[in-house]
Design a binder for these strands. Structure first.
Length: 903
RNA sequence: GCGGGGGUUGCCGAGCCAGGUUAAAGGUACCAGACUUAAGAUCUGGUUCCGUAGGGAUUCGGGGGUUCAAAUCCCCUCCCCCGCACCA
């Protein structure tokens, strides 16, 4: 019989919905599980389904274990992507329009409706509807009655409440902050906005702009190695680029034009006039530390695109400077300011070593520079000044701080590589003034979070370490932006709360959303939230209806919270999950802090990272239509452990489909049997009972893969073995004995098929809502007997293989009684004494016992067992079975291993 | 750089935390056979090497060590992947 997953899955979806199977009421021991809400800007693909599938498997298992499970979900719409896409559609960007047309087509909608996506809300609402549909179809046991989005007004109120608390507790502060920026586009740029930004990351590098005095002006020389300032010998300016005079912080500076263009986004800078570079070259400037006069030399290698276009030269520690000086006739005295621990770094030697002949060997110069820099950074000791004797890496930040304090340097930011936006404009660094931060650097706050981490249930094991690590290095985080969807910052409504910061404690809203929706919107305010969450806010002046709802909401919150398990993928560890912990700790009382977190891997496809260009991105909907939800779930569950990446391989997926078919038709056929199973076949029942027992432990520790492989693949292999050995009819009779329990045990993974089989066998209610099966095993002896028979089959096989014969008779001789006796004695007595007293024949056996510790018979009555299975064995191996102690071979028989002679 | 995770038999991937029951689960691929008009599907057996009796030898990135015994523990070394923030 062919399993028609489409109609069967539809049927159960309908029934679950009709009977509100997954909309729990407060009753009994609760379990709240959450997975971060999806961002709804496009069609879901197989990668999106993973964490929700794992979440659902856990939810379903816990439900079957008798817990009252709530698995809620909402939608994330805050931030810039939706906005950016709708803007591109509005502007007629062909690529984006085609992309969204393809989404519409995928979902069977009219592609011409794409123009509606010019309104961001339409993107959000369209895809959130599709996600509900996709996830429901996947069988996720989500309670949708509690859904909401991060953009809706009620939620905005909640976030405002959250931020007012953070503010009250002094966890929010302001300051300047450098970001990547496009001057032409007037926007900050993220990874997605940068050309090849995902493959070749751009970060912000802090340079130090050092002041060199020239008349009334200051030459601003930018460097990444301010620790070498003591060794400066000259300045380089590029005679081929335009310089200018600008005013900053009450002083006038000389920088390149390009440098000014960028600098003005970092601090207040006013252009005064262009200057002629020739007025500077070969003149003298004064360096700031000792007021030494040093010359300005022409240096065409000075890159106008980097920094300020003014470089100071330290030829003793820079290969560029050394080679640069070689090319002009001047030769200043080299001043060494860093000493290596165990080697001498001489620039001339380095030059030769790297085969650099001149400035034209750019690549080699870059390579050599990197080498020198790394060596001196990690192993170089400062020779002068207050940090004398210290290693560069330990004091570099202090040196920079000193120079700034002394008023002879300022920080200058530069991108880590030359980059441009996807629209072709240069990416620069801008400094955002008065940026709002959440101050995660506060030590007492961190300490509370560490305390929480210490007591949480974290999976996998190394997660704890990763969290502690993250807590250590986490600093202030900017929490608001000037653009994007989301909630306005309550204390400064020019800003929108950044999209990760607005989603840290939202899980609590699931517990109360239905109640909030029944209130008058105007009555929802900070007092109300204080009341619901802390029992403290004054709601006495609100309407009676609202007060009632608030009371119910408070009960519901106290019942469901905290979150028992939050499951997501590992990239969230160092950001979202950490914020999640910090914010809970800051806002909620200790008994509402998160209980457990688990992280899982991602999905790759056909052995590679998913990407459109590789054509290996499969939409969830397509997969569901083609293979069904059960198959998708089964594949994800069994292909890799939760913590590792899953590899979606179409060819393997097809094979899974056959296996599921086989499972279904096997249980379907088993139904038709009427008589009780043969006693000899009860071993398979014993094994199944043990497998189910074991699976319980596996599900508990989220070893879902192991549970699935054992319950499904290994169990199916047992059935196959039994079928081969005893024939189909007998196998089916045995399978019938545990069919219902088998189906139930797999219900968390393949809920639809499980429901179908369960009902086929006359089960009441939903399989999804049954207790997880558990049976007493009275058949273990049968299993031992079977193992013994299996070992005889194995021996038979290896002998026929080696001897290359087709035997017609197998003579089996079990070990003589005295061997059993000695074996028993050897367990309670010292082997050596036994050997001393033994006859020569017995001694040989005892020596063997000493050598081979694996003589561990599993059944005592071997002859009896062989007789019992004689007919089966004979039919299966197609030989006559003779049980006899006669013949030379019997001497070789051991307990647990009878002698076999083939004829 | 900082932090995390890996390198296992054709491939994917278990096992290693609690050393022996591991030539090493499961899947997949391949070979042979059965079935079939044929293909596919399915089933059976096999897939490190040697061996005409259930045996032996050599394997788990490389090197060294601990142990009666190591894929599993310790040390060194080579290589690969991932996260590092304003981006959802």
């Amino acid at each position: 019989m062919i399993y028609d997953f489409n109609s069967i899955e539809e049927k159960w979806l309908r029934k679950w919905k009709e009977e509100k199977a997954f909309e729990p009421r407060m009753d009994g021991e609760k379990f709240l599980i959450t997975v971060p809400w999806p961002y709804c800007n496009g069609a879901l693909h197989i990668g999106h389904g993973r964490t929700y599938t794992i979440g659902d498997i856990v939810a379903r298992y816990k439900r079957m274990k008798g817990l009252n499970v709530l698995y809620p979900m909402g939608f994330h719409i805050s931030g810039t992507p939706i906005l950016a896409f709708s803007k591109k559609i509005e502007n007629g960007d062909a690529q984006t329009i085609n992309l969204y047309k393809s989404y519409l087509e995928l979902y069977g909608d009219d592609p011409s409706k794409v123009s509606e996506f010019a309104i961001p809300d339409n993107i959000a609402s369209y895809f959130s509807e599709r996600i509900i549909n996709d996830f429901t179809n996947m069988g996720f046991s989500i309670d949708w009655t509690r859904k909401f989005t991060s953009g809706e007004p009620i939620y905005n109120k909640f976030v405002e409440w959250q931020f007012s608390i953070l503010k009250e507790k002094n966890l929010i502060k302001r300051g300047d902050y450098p970001i990547l920026y496009s001057a032409e586009e007037g926007n900050p740029v993220g990874e997605d906005d940068i050309l090849e930004g995902d493959t070749d990351k751009v970060s912000i590098t802090q340079f130090t702009g050092v002041f060199f005095y020239f008349g009334n002006d200051i030459l601003l020389a930018s460097t990444v190695r301010p620790e070498t300032l003591d060794g400066v010998t000259n300045i380089f300016m590029n005679p081929e680029i335009q310089y200018c005079r600008i005013r900053m912080r009450g002083q006038t500076f000389i920088v390149s034009r390009r440098g000014y263009e960028k600098l003005k986004y970092q601090r207040d800078a006013e252009f005064i006039s262009d200057v002629d570079v020739n007025d500077y070259i070969y003149k003298m400037a004064r360096e700031p530390l000792y007021s030494r006069e040093i010359p300005i030399f022409p240096g065409k290698f000075v890159d106008p695109e980097i920094g300020t276009g003014v470089d100071y030269s330290v030829p003793a520690h820079s290969i560029w400077d050394h080679v640069g000086l070689m090319e002009i006739s001047e030769k200043p005295e080299y001043i060494q300011v860093i000493e290596m621990e165990n080697q001498r770094l001489d620039m001339e030697e380095i030059r030769k070593k790297f085969g650099i002949s001149g400035l034209k060997d750019r690549e080699k110069l870059v390579e050599a520079t990197k080498y020198v820099y790394e060596q001196e950074f990690y192993h170089g000791k400062i020779l002068k000044g207050r940090f004398k004797g210290r290693v560069v890496k330990d004091v570099k930040d202090l040196i920079i701080e000193d120079l700034i304090q002394m008023g002879i340097a300022i920080p200058v930011y530069e991108t880590s590589r030359k980059a441009e936006t996807r629209e072709g404009n240069p990416v620069i660094v801008a400094v955002i003034k008065n940026q709002w931060f959440i101050d995660y650097s506060l030590e007492e706050w961190k300490e509370k979070v560490r305390k929480l981490i210490g007591r949480m249930d974290l999976k996998p094991d190394n997660l704890k370490n990763q969290f502690l690590q993250t807590v250590d290095w986490i600093k202030e985080r900017p929490c608001a932006r000037k653009r994007g969807l989301g909630t306005k910052l309550p204390m400064d409504t020019d800003w929108v709360i950044e999209s990760l910061s607005d989603s840290t404690i939202y899980t609590v809203v699931y517990t109360i959303m239905p109640f909030l929706r029944r209130m008058r919107y105007e009555e929802i305010d900070n007092d109300l939230f204080d009341y619901i969450f802390f029992g403290s806010g004054d709601i006495s002046r609100k309407s009676e209806a609202t007060r009632n709802e608030a009371n119910e909401a408070r009960k519901e919150f106290l019942y469901w919270y905290p979150v028992d398990l939050r499951h997501t993928s590992y990239p969230h560890i160092s950001n979202h999950l950490t914020f999640y912990l910090f914010n809970h700790v800051a806002i909620f009382p200790e008994n509402e802090w998160p209980v457990g977190i688990s992280t899982g891997g991602m999905v790759i496809s056909e052995g590679q990272k998913m990407s459109k260009s590789k054509g290996n991105v499969y939409p969830l909907l397509t997969v569901k239509r083609k293979y069904g939800a059960d198959l998708f779930r089964m594949y994800l569950a069994s292909n890799a452990d939760v913590w590792y990446d899953v590899d979606w391989r179409t060819s393997e997926v097809e094979n899974y489909s056959k296996k599921l078919e086989r499972f279904y038709s096997l249980l379907d056929e088993a139904r038709s049997t009427t008589s009780e199973p043969d006693e000899r076949d009860m071993w398979i029942v014993s094994r199944m009972i043990d497998r189910i027992e074991k699976s319980s432990r596996n599900y508990d520790s989220m070893r879902i893969r192991e549970a699935t492989i054992d319950l499904f693949f290994n169990a199916l292999n047992d059935v196959r073995d039994l079928e081969n050995f005893a024939g189909k009819e007998r196998a089916l009779r045995a399978v019938r004995k545990f069919a219902k329990e088998w189906a139930l045990s797999l219900s968390p993974v393949i809920p639809f098929m499980s429901e179908e089989i369960y009902s086929m066998y006359g089960g009441d209610g939903f399989a999804s809502l049954q207790r997880y099966p558990s049976m007493t095993n009275n058949f273990r002896d049968h299993e031992y007997e079977w193992e013994f028979i299996e070992s005889i089959v194995e021996d038979f096989r290896s002998i026929t293989k080696v001897s290359n014969m087709k035997p017609s008779r197998m003579i089996i001789g079990t070990a003589e009684e005295w061997k059993w006796k000695l074996l028993d004695e050897s367990k309670s007595m010292d082997l050596k004494t036994l050997i001393k007293e033994a006859t020569p024949e017995h001694r040989d056996f005892l020596l063997l016992l000493m050598k081979k510790k694996d003589i561990a018979p599993i059944v005592r009555n071997e002859e009896e067992v062989i007789t019992k299975y004689k007919d089966d064995l004979s039919r299966y191996l197609n030989v006559e079975i003779v049980l006899s102690k006669e013949g030379a071979h019997t001497k070789k028989a051991l307990p647990g291993r009878p002698a076999i002679r083939l004829e």
